[in-house]
């Protein structure tokens, strides 16, 4: 009986502690942003795993990829298609099906040249399935062109 009373008084005290925490949060500034007008600081997105992208090797859209097919073999969802070009080791085609990707990073870990990484694109939207079938080489070139402007 005595123990139960002590427990209840402790419980009541914990209620006051909880109220003080929410009371403090009520007056502290909000953590979220009004999305269309404001966006999140890009640095805080650094740990976000967006769709894959190729790492640029130079400024004109060249890739570090050597077409070794390690990423294709490592991928559990078979979402990568890499075709080697006629000259050298650089790939001719690098297709990526985001609808099948489970963002497991097996390709990123298996890549011997660190040619592939996750992007931090949280704003990706698509209306059709085809928009998620991405051509990563074209994407790399577009980014290089955008950076050079």
């Amino acid at each position: 009986m005595f123990r139960a009373i002590v427990d209840n008084i402790k419980g009541l005290w914990s209620l006051i502690v909880g109220l003080s925490i929410t009371g403090r949060f009520f007056f502290s500034p909000v953590k979220t942003v009004h999305y269309p007008r404001q966006v999140v600081d890009p640095e805080s997105l650094a740990s976000y795993r967006g769709p894959l992208e190729l790492v640029p090797a130079d400024d004109v859209g060249g890739s570090k990829c050597v077409s070794c097919q390690m990423c294709v073999r490592a991928c559990p969802g078979n979402c990568l298609t890499v075709i080697k070009g006629k000259e050298g080791k650089a790939p001719e085609t690098y297709l990526y099906d985001f609808t099948l990707c489970c963002l497991c990073a097996a390709c990123v870990e298996s890549c011997p040249t660190s040619a592939i990484r996750f992007s931090h694109n949280v704003y990706l939207t698509a209306r059709t399935r085809e928009e998620l079938h991405m051509d990563l080489l074209a994407d790399l070139k577009a980014r290089a062109a955008k950076a050079s402007q």
Binding site: T22, F25, F26, F27, K31, T32
Partner: peptide, 10 residues
Amino acid sequence: KTAGFIQRRP
């Protein structure tokens, strides 16, 4: 509004 502010959203 209270729910929002307590959960640190507007």
